[in-house]
Amino acid sequence: MLADETKKTEVWDTKTQAFHGGQEHRFLDNFVEDFSVTTNYLGTPRKALDAAREAISEVHHYPAANQEPAKTSLAQFLWPSNYSEHHGRLLLGNGASELIDLVVRKTLLTCVSRGVTKPKWKGGPWNVQYREYQRSAENNEFEIMDPTYKEPVDLLCVVNPCNPTGDYFDVESLKAFIKANVVSGGTVLVDESMQPWHSSDFRSDSLTSAHAFVKEMWEHDQIGVHVIHSWTKIWSCTGLRVGSVITPTASHCEALRKIQVPWSVNGPALKFVEAVVLDDDYMKETWENTTRLRAYLIDQLTGLNDKWVYHGKPFLSWVWVDMLSEEVASKAIDLARQAGVPVRSGKPGYSCPTFVRVAVRKEPEIARLINAWKSL
């Protein structure tokens, strides 16, 4: 039951904001588990949460303007063997959304300097993806091209793995797609927020390790490849707002810092990052069990309806479910909410009314959702 239906509908200003999951829990008086967000099934790492709590006692001080030592800690996590070589290309932000907007705004300035009065943007090649990239491009008056648009564009944004569809480019396929779809002098934003779920060897299939490719794209064609991470999903800390961007060169990083609001990442968030990158056990358990739990979730859903279609790679923290009927999907969303286990509708934001996105969770919580959907 909804505690306050009016407040729920007022959470998002649809004229100015993109719809997102993760808000319904605050209006459910019987809330059990949030299946609408793609956070880690393990919840927030305890030691990192304790570090953030302890940092609250220092809120009378400004956070570190240079984001240290959290930035170095994250650099060591990304590049264990040679972090010092790439540290200057890394910038933290108030979630990925702030950094997305910084890069889009900087790209617009670059386009204007090149004499491009109406730069083109496209995402994809997936039919839908996380909407903040398009929203920022629209706000900055880029011409929005459909993912099926075949010509290279000034700003290419690829969410990989794609949230919500679950599509995934291996790193070599991703490089080829980038080369074919951005103009000389253009900008690329690749969101790898969900890529660390890949495996303990995730770095080898990631643009974070493709240093020669990024360097070549910049030096040969003046194409700036940026890699975005929202760390709030893998470490289940969405309320803290922690993101990062890896820029093509240190100079690109400096240019973004120049237009970034000072102290954009708060003290507790910085302390959280310092601690969480050391929690090897948390990551090991994530890699060992997410794939198993996702397979279990699909098996349980299939038991309800063997006609539904499931999308996404096995390692991902969610399932994109096509229920093949808008009526069934709508009923499923209502039933899940009534049971205190909200899921993400594919209709608002994504315009996929027969789809729902269901996060991977532990068996008892999955049982609660399955029980709510038995009437489907």
Results as ranks from 00 to 15, higher is better:
342 P>M: 08
80 P>Q: 01
218 W>C: 13
188 V>S: 15
362 K>P: 03
308 W>E: 07
103 V>T: 06
69 P>E: 02
27 F>P: 10
304 L>Q: 12
154 D>I: 02
63 P>A: 00
259 I>V: 14
160 N>G: 01
303 G>I: 09
59 V>D: 06
100 I>F: 02
71 K>D: 01
252 H>W: 15
345 S>E: 12
322 D>I: 10
376 L>A: 12
344 R>E: 11
140 N>R: 11
84 S>W: 03
60 H>K: 14
324 L>K: 15
175 K>R: 14
59 V>Q: 10
160 N>T: 01
105 R>L: 02
172 E>I: 04
18 A>Q: 08
59 V>G: 05
88 G>Y: 12
224 G>E: 13
253 C>H: 02
142 F>R: 13
298 I>T: 11
363 E>P: 03
219 E>I: 09
41 Y>C: 05
22 G>V: 04
106 K>Q: 11
87 H>D: 11
236 S>Q: 12
106 K>D: 11
267 G>D: 08
171 V>E: 07
355 F>C: 14
162 C>H: 03
235 W>A: 13
10 E>F: 05
351 S>H: 13
52 A>P: 11
98 E>F: 02
64 A>R: 10
205 D>P: 00
234 I>E: 01
355 F>Q: 13
357 R>A: 13
373 W>G: 09
204 S>V: 04
128 V>D: 03
249 T>N: 13
